[in-house]
């Protein structure tokens, strides 16, 4: 579904963070991208979304080259992005935030209500200003807002960041259910191994702007040295 080859990207010319990265995701996979801070995880998802000024190489999505397209075109091809820090609209109500997820979509979306099955708390809080909700609730809103546009590929950047462990578990379970029921392909950037074990079907480890190894989630479970090699400082 997504094929990335020789991806070089960075924030200023001549200073690439990604140094010829290769990455493949098949339809229906839930891939975790793991690595230490500063290895290029967030840069990678931003490059996919067209949010970086300097990107070279090739990114194809369902056979279409998307490298160089502006973010709105990439989004409208069916890739939804839940960025680090959630980036909900704090002055908007929950309902308005969800509306932002569908208004511009090329497919006519009849209802956003299906996300309330996954995140019932949002139904209760439809009229609340999103900025006044807790971190966990905001994260649920950010995911729901990405889902209402009916994407095929969901990019999540550190969904566990700043959220208490019990809520992280809930979110991980819900994401797993969503991926299965909505036939979503998921790429999740994460350092929280607990969430990765609950959600991912495979793991790619990133180091210095390159994917070093890709393994199934079972291999990660049975070989703890993998995690310590790529994650501990």
């Amino acid at each position: 579904m997504l094929t990335v080859s020789d991806l070089r990207a960075g924030y200023s010319r001549g200073a690439d963070v990604l140094k010829g990265l290769r990455f493949d995701v098949a339809k229906g996979e839930s891939v975790a991208l793991m690595g230490r801070n500063g290895m290029g995880k967030t840069t990678f998802v931003k490059a996919l979304m067209g949010c970086l000024p300097h990107v070279r190489g090739s990114i194809t999505f369902n056979g279409t080259e998307i490298r160089g397209l502006p973010p709105y075109r990439i989004s409208n091809l069916g890739i939804a992005y839940v960025p680090q820090g959630r980036e909900i609209f704090g002055d908007f109500t929950v309902a308005e935030n969800l509306a932002m997820g569908v208004i511009g979509k090329p497919l006519k979306v009849d209802s956003v209500d299906f996300v309330f099955d996954y995140f019932p708390i949002l139904a209760e809080r439809r009229t609340q200003l999103a900025g006044t909700m807790s971190g966990g609730q905001q994260q649920q809103l950010a995911i729901a807002r990405a889902l209402v546009g009916r994407p095929q590929l969901l990019l999540l950047d550190e969904p566990s960041e700043g959220i208490q462990p019990s809520i992280v578990q809930d979110i991980a379970m819900t994401l797993k259910r969503i991926a299965a029921e909505e036939a979503l392909t998921v790429i999740v950037v994460e350092q929280n191994i607990d969430l990765v074990f609950r959600l991912a079907t495979s793991v790619r480890f990133i180091e210095n702007g390159l994917i070093k190894t890709g393994v199934s989630i079972d291999e990660v479970r049975s070989d703890p040295t993998l995690v310590s090699r790529y994650l501990t400082v």
Binding site: P70, Y72, E87, F89, F92, E96
Partner: peptide, 23 residues
């Protein structure tokens, strides 16, 4: 809906862009 998008862009352009709006 146009107004909602406009306020979204007002709050954060890049966010509106990656949500599919030609800012």
């Amino acid at each position: 809906p146009f107004g909602t998008v406009l306020r979204g862009i007002r709050d954060n352009e890049m966010r509106a862009a990656f949500m599919g709006y030609d800012v």
